[in-house]
Structures are given as C-alpha cells and as structure tokens.
Simulated assay, not measured.
Amino acid sequence: MRRARLPKALAAVGLLTVACTVEPGIISTPSPVLQPVVDSAPYVCSLIPEQAFRLVSGVTGPLAGETDGDERNGDCRTSDTTSLSLEVWWMQEGSGMTREHLSFLLNDRREVYSRHDGVVLPTELGEGMAAHLSDPPSGDQPYQVSAKFQCGGKERLIDIFLPQVAMGRDAIKDLIALMRIAQKRYGELYDCTPGP
C-alpha cells in the first residue's frame, strides 16, 4: 500500500515543479518608481507647488483659485473645471485667536483623524496628523493633513485638504511632504522660521 502512494506523491511534486518553472520569454516588469513631491514655483494657494499638487492629486485641467485673508488667518480654495480640488487654511495666534483656541482646533482634528487611523506628523513639523477620512464631514475632501507649529515666536496652524490622490501614490506620505513645503513657504512669505 505504501509503495502505491509514493509514486503518486512523486508525480504531484513533479507537476508542482513544472508549474513553478519560469517560461522563457516571460519578463517581469518592476513597479514604476514614483516621482517625489518637490518644491518649485509656481504655487497654488501661495503655499503648495502647482506641479507637486498635480502630481499628488492627478488633476490635469486648468486651475482657478480664490484666496481670502492675510498672514494671520486665511483660506484658499482652488478648483479645476469639475470640482473643488484643494483647500488650504492657515491661522496664527494673536488678537482673537489664542494659543488655547489653536490647540482646541488641532485637538478636534486629531480626534477625527485618529478615528480614521491617522498618522502623527514628524516632530520637526510640530504637532499634527495626516489621514484619509473614509467619510469626511464635508463629503468631498477625504485626504487631510493639519499641523500646529511655531514661526516667529507665534503658533500657527495649517490645514491642507485634497479630494483625491492619484492612483498608486502614498497619500499619507504625500500629504506630509505637502505640509513640509507649505510650512517652509509660509516662513518665506511671512518672514519667520518654522519649527516645532
């Protein structure tokens, strides 16, 4: 009985060996290397490089933006021809905006981001998180990153919201890269040095 089973087992091993043999002429194609998010002019909403935004979001059409506010508090909404494609908000500690209120706003965002497996930002970007919200309150900006940081001795808060991320991109990594650039650009525009 045992001798009858042995040839069947050897035959099965032989079939597996043939099935796992690579056919000549078949070449595996490596995944493409994703382009990094880099800082370069021109900028969208004054803080986000247009080319980086297009790379991350996959948006290709013409952009129209509207900015409201100043160094202390402001927002920018940039849309392509079909929908809202980028929102950037910034706030600064000062008259009417206490440090405690900035902390309250950030804690509120952190609570939401934590429910969606958000990722804590690197410490050099200050306090904050990045997340993909499966059911965002606004319904159209699921990719979000928020950071509270120091610049010129005052606390600042920047929010960046995207409606989509291009297929194959690492949304969280890209959001963190966009925040890094936005903080640097903010410092250049408003003559302060960003830090944690």
Rank of each mutant, 00 (worst) to 15 (best):
Q92E: 11
T98Y: 02
L86S: 02
D70S: 05
P42N: 03
L106M: 13
N73S: 11
R156S: 04
R109G: 03
V88A: 02
E100A: 14
V59K: 01
D174I: 06
L105W: 10
H132Q: 14
M129K: 04
I172K: 05
R77K: 11
L125Q: 13
Q144R: 15
G153S: 12
W89G: 00
D75K: 11
P36I: 07
I172D: 02
C45P: 08
C76N: 08
A131K: 09
D108F: 05
P62C: 00
D80N: 15
L121K: 04
L105T: 11
Q150V: 10
G152H: 08
A131E: 07
V56Q: 01
C45V: 07
W90D: 03
D75N: 12
T123S: 14
L34A: 10
P142H: 05
I172R: 02
V120Y: 05
E127T: 13
Q141L: 15
L86T: 04
L133P: 11
S138V: 15
N107Y: 08
G126P: 13
P136S: 01
D80Q: 13
Y113P: 04
S134E: 13
Q92N: 06
L55A: 01
V165T: 09
E93T: 14
D70A: 01
W90P: 04
L125E: 10
P136K: 00
S134I: 14
F161T: 00
R156V: 13
L106S: 05
L121Y: 07
G128I: 14
C151V: 12
